[in-house]
Design a protein around this nucleic acid. Sequence first.
DNA 1: GTCTATATCTTGATAGAC
DNA 2: GTCTATCAAGATATAGAC
Lengths: 210, 210
Amino acid sequence: MTEAHEAATGAQPTRAERRRRSEAAILKAATTVFAETGYDRTTIRAVAQRAGVDPALVMQHFASKERLFAAATEQTVPTDSLLDADIDGLSEAALDHAFAPFEDPELRAQAEALLRSSLTHPAALKVLRDDVMVPVQTRLAANLGDQDAALKAALLNASMLGVVTARYLLDIPALAEADIGDLRRLLLPALDALLETSDRDDPARPGGES
Amino acid sequence: MTEAHEAATGAQPTRAERRRRSEAAILKAATTVFAETGYDRTTIRAVAQRAGVDPALVMQHFASKERLFAAATEQTVPTDSLLDADIDGLSEAALDHAFAPFEDPELRAQAEALLRSSLTHPAALKVLRDDVMVPVQTRLAANLGDQDAALKAALLNASMLGVVTARYLLDIPALAEADIGDLRRLLLPALDALLETSDRDDPARPGGES
DNA sequence: GTCTATATCTTGATAGAC
DNA sequence: GTCTATCAAGATATAGAC
């Protein structure tokens, strides 16, 4: 039952429906404010104002600021498409995986809220590290093979973290204005070089077909 | 006049000397606390306790939390050694430049304080972007030459930001435990590949001496 | 020079009217 | 279900004793 449908039919939304909608409005507003200012500087009052509701209503729905933040940053980690990538397309898959949430209008605020708070809010740090970065690195490393796999995966992941942070959160001019195609074009060779088998590999298992 | 010297001679420190010392102690404590928890979660009380002085004394010396933070993160940008690097050693110079403050016990807390607060504290963001990253990128780009110079420099700089952030602030296991020599060994080829002249270069001015 | 005491403000959270 | 009113805690910053 959509709002437009109601307006056309004149039907009244049920109480449960009204409640669900105000909760969604609050959550959307909270995600935006968290994304803009981070956890600490975000106030319940500011969230309520943005959502057009009373501050007490925010507490009624989410019980605490901590749980509101958890709800606003939930599911930031998309279903990973890093498993089915062949080795050649691995860096490309990792690159796209890093940009995807920030280029998707639906996910952008969620991702930004989590990332912006990650350096100062312990709960956000834990989620980013344990639920996002480490799993991604594990899946990347699983596709690699050489003895430096874990470290290479971590470096690739951290580099991409730096790029999206600089572009979307720090607003570093050269990166914020850049075309995403140019970023891909320049980054891909570098990421490929990072993943390439290094000299120190086990001689019994010569690296790839170099 | 050192403390040890005074103890040996029994000389009394002057008032100005006592003041200078308590100010230094406060500044050191502030830098540490800012580095650990960021600007917002750092309280004047916590700084005073860490320094072993009264909270009011902190205000007496630095007037405001904002100015205390500015003093604690001042001079984070070291005199750049990126100008005299030849093109071949450029990525190596940039890499070392990124790690240096975090590997120097004297500078570590300063750098961490600035970086940790940069995503949530506007003043810290401005310093990191305008006084640290943009100048570094400008100097890197000046040594490059091709038409993507600015973007390549920005990407290299942002990647290193991500690596040091993941290693020193987020404590991503694979990176935090890694030997810095391994990080250099794996990163250098990737950074070199990033700076390499790309295919799209102006045909009238073939890139470097490749 | 240093500290006690406190003013002033803002926060998250709660209680109760309607 | 929503809002008014308010609490308790903690923050920066100040004033003044010593």
